[in-house]
Amino acid sequence: GHNGAIARPRKVKLRAQDRTGKVFEMEGEEMLARCFCHETNHLDGITIMDLADRFYEDDYPDGAEEE
């Protein structure tokens, strides 16, 4: 229910492990880089409330999410 402005890098390189523990690296640019950062933040327990410079009002009418 929150929308906010979060600065993210345009290019990201990450190192991770697959389900079997094998280490691999990936690079992402633009939207993929933002997704990598977003998901990594979840793993680290960081939320939009911790990062947003400012918040926007929801565009949804009251009760729309209940449909």
Score class of each variant (00 low, 15 high):
residue 2 H to E: 05
residue 3 N to H: 14
residue 3 N to L: 13
residue 4 G to H: 04
residue 4 G to E: 06
residue 4 G to Y: 03
residue 5 A to G: 04
residue 5 A to W: 07
residue 6 I to W: 02
residue 9 P to I: 05
residue 10 R to W: 03
residue 11 K to A: 13
residue 11 K to S: 11
residue 11 K to M: 07
residue 11 K to P: 01
residue 12 V to N: 01
residue 12 V to M: 03
residue 14 L to T: 03
residue 16 A to C: 08
residue 16 A to E: 08
residue 16 A to F: 11
residue 16 A to L: 10
residue 16 A to D: 14
residue 17 Q to Y: 07
residue 17 Q to L: 10
residue 17 Q to K: 15
residue 19 R to I: 12
residue 22 K to L: 02
residue 22 K to W: 06
residue 23 V to E: 15
residue 23 V to D: 12
residue 23 V to Q: 15
residue 25 E to T: 15
residue 27 E to A: 11
residue 28 G to M: 03
residue 30 E to D: 15
residue 33 A to W: 00
residue 33 A to I: 00
residue 34 R to F: 12
residue 34 R to M: 13
residue 34 R to A: 15
residue 34 R to S: 14
residue 36 F to H: 01
residue 36 F to R: 00
residue 38 H to S: 05
residue 38 H to E: 08
residue 39 E to K: 11
residue 39 E to F: 09
residue 39 E to C: 08
residue 41 N to Q: 05
residue 42 H to P: 01
residue 42 H to N: 06
residue 43 L to M: 12
residue 43 L to I: 08
residue 44 D to F: 09
residue 46 I to V: 15
residue 46 I to M: 02
residue 47 T to H: 10
residue 47 T to M: 07
residue 48 I to A: 00
residue 48 I to T: 07
residue 57 E to V: 08
residue 57 E to P: 01
residue 57 E to R: 15
residue 59 D to I: 12
residue 59 D to V: 14
residue 60 Y to W: 14
residue 62 D to A: 15
residue 62 D to I: 14
residue 62 D to M: 12
residue 63 G to H: 06
residue 63 G to P: 00
residue 65 E to F: 09
residue 65 E to A: 13
residue 66 E to M: 09
residue 66 E to W: 06
